[in-house]
Amino acid sequence: MELSADITELIACCILIFTSLLGNAILIYCTWRCITRRLPTSFALIFSLAFAHVLKNIVVNAINIILNAGFSPNPLICKIRVFTASLTTKLEIWFTLYMAIFYCFKLKRVVHPLRAPPNGKWRKHHLITVFALWVTGISVCCPYLIYVNDVQSLTLYNDSYPAQNNFLYEDCNVRFPDAIIDIYYHQTFMVVTDLLPIVVLLFVCARILLLFREQSQATYGNIWIGHDASETEVLRASKVIVILMHIVTALWVAHFVIVRSIKHINVWYWMSTLLVVLFSGYASISPYLLMLINYKISLQIRSLSSFCCKNNNLNKSPSGGQKSIPDSSPAGG
């Protein structure tokens, strides 16, 4: 039996929600267990990315499932959908850029060590910046809570109004009372606030690759001082950031190109499913890569997985069909 486009999109949304919630839940739990006295900057960035991923999948993809189940979109659902989609997309890009800049400076200190110790007051500035990015993202996307309407009622109201999708699909549309505001805010400013950080992210990752080249060529002198635990963590985190840069850039560019040319390729059967995967793919993939950044998080994940495996073995032993020998094996199994 051939699946319809709506069923395929619904299945894709369910898979993306499950994958993202599982990965981000493990990431948040293991990161929280690693905090001893105060919140490190890298953990604050990981928490921000994880919460943005969870918010995107819980709200946007849940609304996609509701709409595919047969419920007609209304202005309130469209407002929440478009606002959350735009906000979480910007926060994902901004915090990925921030994390890339953060580890770029740490990698530079590893390759070119400073004689003086780093200033500890920077941690407070980083936390303030993280909070400011959340406030800025919410403020920038607030107009979408006012000017989002149902696309069907908008078509009945004015057939000449162009249907511009806001990084989503044809169900919801953004309508501004002034065409100038629509051009400068919706079609220009909101795109630039995504595209410009991606361009900066490319340059930052290029700088990281150059630092890796310097590190591989520095074998003596006062440039390279060897590998300890903190240096290994910085090197591994920088490699993860480069991978995340490729993922978020490829998914955003592909989604943007398809949405902008949706009028010419909308006849494709799997178009809505492809847009869902491109839109939420980063929120489902990145948490599993972010687990590799800090070695303490990796240890927490290993201990959590070993604990789960031990519980599964204990639960299976009474019903496994085999009689256990009480005194011939150690209790740890």
Rank of each mutant, 00 (worst) to 15 (best):
T193Q: 04
T193I: 10
T193R: 00
T193P: 00
T193A: 04
T193H: 02
T193D: 00
D194F: 05
D194A: 07
D194R: 12
D194M: 12
D194S: 13
L195H: 04
L195P: 01
L195T: 11
L195Q: 01
L195S: 07
L195K: 04
L196Q: 00
L196C: 03
P197L: 03
P197V: 09
P197E: 00
P197W: 02
P197K: 01
P197G: 01
P197A: 05
I198K: 06
I198N: 10
I198M: 14
I198Y: 03
V199W: 09
V199F: 14
V199Y: 12
V200S: 11
V200H: 11
V200F: 15
L201D: 08
L201P: 06
L201R: 08
L201S: 07
L201T: 02
L202G: 13
L202P: 02
L202E: 05
F203D: 08
F203W: 09
V204P: 09
V204S: 03
V204G: 01
V204F: 09
C205Q: 02
C205A: 00
C205M: 00
C205R: 02
C205D: 05
C205W: 05
A206H: 10
A206V: 02
A206W: 10
A206S: 06
A206Y: 06
A206I: 09
R207D: 04
R207F: 04
R207Y: 06
I208G: 00
I208S: 05
L209H: 09
L210H: 12
L210F: 12
L210T: 03
L210R: 15
L211M: 03
L211C: 01
F212Y: 08
F212T: 02
F212M: 05
R213H: 12
R213N: 09
E214F: 07
E214S: 06
E214M: 10
E214L: 05
E214W: 06
Q215K: 06
Q215E: 05
Q215D: 11
Q215S: 04
S216Y: 07
S216L: 03
S216E: 08
S216V: 00
S216K: 13
S216T: 08
Q217N: 13
Q217L: 07
Q217F: 10
A218W: 12
A218K: 13
A218Q: 14
A218G: 08
T219Y: 10
T219V: 03
T219R: 14
Y220N: 08
Y220V: 02
G221N: 07
N222D: 14
N222W: 10
N222E: 12
I223E: 15
I223P: 03
I223W: 08
W224M: 06
W224T: 07
W224I: 04
I225S: 15
I225M: 15
G226C: 12
G226A: 10
G226Y: 13
G226T: 06
H227M: 14
H227Y: 15
H227N: 15
H227K: 15
H227F: 13
H227T: 14
H227P: 01
H227I: 12
D228Q: 13
D228M: 05
D228I: 04
D228F: 09
D228A: 04
A229L: 09
A229D: 07
S230A: 15
S230N: 14
S230D: 13
